[in-house]
Design a binder for these strands. Structure first.
Lengths: 200, 200
DNA sequence: TCAAGAACCGAACGATCGTGCTTTTATGAG
DNA sequence: CTCATAAAAGCACGATCGTTCGGTTCTTGA
């Protein structure tokens, strides 16, 4: 890797961390330059504009999400175990991924009303994730782990809700039982998808 | 109401609307002054600082939430109907309350890592809402609508998840079926709380 | 080793930020 | 209608914003 690429990677690492704390919009060239010990202009030379920097930060975070969540997930046995692995890694990503919490959650509520490349990139990432999740759940259905009438998209919607609630409870409310609550909600969700009628 | 109070109210109305679009942090005195047709200094005279403005915007939104969600909710019959009313009004609040979506959701992910009065106010509002919700659900239990072993706090957590997922799906993904999905999730949540064993 | 080119810096730009003053204008009680 | 007071404007401040450019320092391949 050339010098330029390595510093750019370092910048994006720092930028992602910083953005998770102050938001993609709150991120400024000046503070980022100070954090990376570069001059403003020296840093800026790596990007065409601030907007481009924001988009690249999102892509950078997306690559990491693929590495630490998606790839290990699809390497586990298909069906329910894979669904569970995905959930586990997703929750862990939110807790320990970045200092300021999941950057996609932060950016989503910040840019959901601001048309442009940043929003587009967010939507793309989210659509991708939802698509993967739908397939993973669909497989759990076809494997017989989940009932035939389980709607993978509805499952994805509800799983997203659990993860968002976890993020909210943990980061804003600093609820120590956030993760335990998320697990309980997840178990209930999975339980309602099982083929056999529940104990009654 | 004196002139001063009425303009201040108008400022806060506009500020809340604007903040829902660009975030509490993205809100600036200049743009807000332009939107209210006031001079920067004329507007600023109503507040001690920008931080104070942000806090008062949150309090303003909170008052409105109390009016359009909480008050009608506690006026409906206790138990499950009241739980349902709360959910309905909460969802409606998010869809139609402000142009840029629920300002609390936006501000939560923006300020969850920034210590200070704004964060404190957010936590206070959230704790209040959660407390009310817990009582409403608790009543549904004591009325016999929900099972005895239903955990109201867990219920609140999961309901918050559904609402957050709805916000996410609707605002970022512009999913037209967001509300329908939220209702399905809610029905499942309530269904799992019912005393009688389900059809089996 | 040495030149070509990449990487980085320093300084500056116009704009806008939040925040103080002082002055003008509007309000409303007597 | 008058006049004390409240409300809004005008102007300016230092700081920081994103961005540009010309020059300096470093990397790297031949």
């Amino acid at each position: 890797m050339s010098k330029g690429e390595s510093t750019k990677t370092a910048i994006l690492d720092e930028a992602t961390e910083l953005a998770s704390l102050v938001g993609l919009g709150g991120l400024t060239i000046g503070t980022l330059a100070a954090a990376t010990k570069l001059s403003k202009s020296g840093l800026y030379a790596h990007f065409a504009s601030k907007e481009s920097l924001q988009v690249q930060v999102l892509q950078h975070a997306r690559d990491r999400f693929t590495d630490v969540v998606m790839r290990p997930t699809v390497a586990t046995p298909r069906g329910e175990p894979r669904v569970r692995e995905f959930f586990d890694r997703w929750i862990t990503w939110q807790s320990t991924g970045y200092a300021g919490g999941c950057i996609f959650v932060d950016a989503a509520s910040e840019f959901d009303d601001q048309e442009g490349p940043v929003r587009d990139e967010l939507v793309r990432a989210e659509r991708d994730k939802l698509e993967s999740l739908t397939m993973i759940v669909g497989t759990a259905v076809s494997e017989g782990h989940f009932r035939d009438d389980v709607d993978p998209e509805q499952f994805g919607y509800e799983l997203e809700g659990i993860v968002l609630a976890h993020h909210h409870a943990r980061r804003l409310m600093r609820d120590g039982r956030a993760e335990e609550r998320a697990r309980r909600a997840f178990d209930r969700l999975v339980d309602d998808c099982r083929p056999v009628a529940r104990s009654a």
